[in-house]
Design a protein around this nucleic acid. Structure first.
Lengths: 163, 163
DNA sequence: TAGTTTTTGCGACTCGTTCGCAGTTACGCA
DNA sequence: TGCGTAACTGCGAACGAGTCGCAAAAACTA
């Protein structure tokens, strides 16, 4: 395989289903690979490779960080996994199944996950005005969240501007 | 100075004017600092610290990378400079003067710079629907540009998905 | 011109991520 | 059931982007 294809999202509702999808394309279900899948199924939000390698703080056996990265990449090629860049800090990985997009707050870094359709009106506006088809699944929409907007009435932010 | 304030944009239309602004807050106009300013004035778009340190490929004397970073930070605190994260790759720095925001293409990485007001309709849509006040000056709006949309009709992209 | 304080330039270091490679392991087939 | 051969692992070393510590050098000030 020479081309690094980004496949369409592939829904698998269990590790075993995911393993099946892997085998269908001649990929193997190694222990390390299963561990990555288990971490992603066991998490309630996107995970850094680091957290996966640490086995979700001990809930799973730890594994080698380089292998975790390679497996996340493989799983992403297959379409089982997707990653996001939520501002600074490491990339975060999650199961690809439900098509999610992200809004993050520039000030407090809170993340809001929304279903893709919820952004259709925004998408239409941008498409009509600029011809761009915005996508907030890989890079989020960044702005000030409602909380930080109200806080910034009158006085400036006091968090370090980790910009 | 303990707080790392993000100052409002400060317009300076020449290196000398910028130097003046520096001196007003007790900062010095060192050679290295002027060099950074000259690079930014001499460039036609946002620059990486690396390119500044290399003196725009030889057009200016090269300088120390760590100092360039420190100076960019200082200039940003003063409000003369602003930086963007256009997808992957290093952060890019530009003079702060005109309030710009960015649209970038997820596929071909083309960058479109737009005046802030042009995004007001989008901003209103997002604010009304989510309460977020989107800002595309520090992290851009990411999507598919018109060219890549038409190209992707029928066949998939062939660039490496440097995601 | 001397004194003080900022800034420089260098090297060492961090963090997130990738690469090279020898050793292991999963699967396909006998 | 075991055997060969790919795919995969785990380690260490390297990467690019950015930061930090520190002694030496400049910039402003009196």
């Amino acid at each position: 395989m020479t081309t690094t294809h980004r496949s369409p999202a592939l829904a698998a509702t269990s590790v075993e289903e995911a393993v099946e999808a892997l085998r269908e394309r001649g990929l193997r279900a190694s222990a390390a690979r299963r561990l990555v899948l288990e971490a992603l199924y066991g998490a309630d939000g996107p995970l850094s490779a680091e957290r996966v390698a640490e086995g979700l703080e001990g809930r799973l056996p730890r594994s080698d960080l380089a292998s975790v990265y390679r497996n996340l990449e493989t799983l992403e090629e297959v379409g089982l996994v997707r990653h996001v860049h939520l501002g600074h800090g490491p990339g975060l990985y999650a199961l690809a199944a439900p098509e999610h997009e992200y809004l993050v707050c520039e000030s407090c870094h809170a993340v809001r996950t929304v279903a893709s359709e919820e952004l259709d009106a925004v998408r239409t506006q941008v498409r009509e005005q600029f011809g761009y088809e915005p996508r907030f699944a890989h890079f989020p929409l960044v702005g000030l969240c409602p909380d930080c907007i109200s806080e910034s009435h009158g006085h400036e932010e006091r968090k370090r501007a980790h910009s």
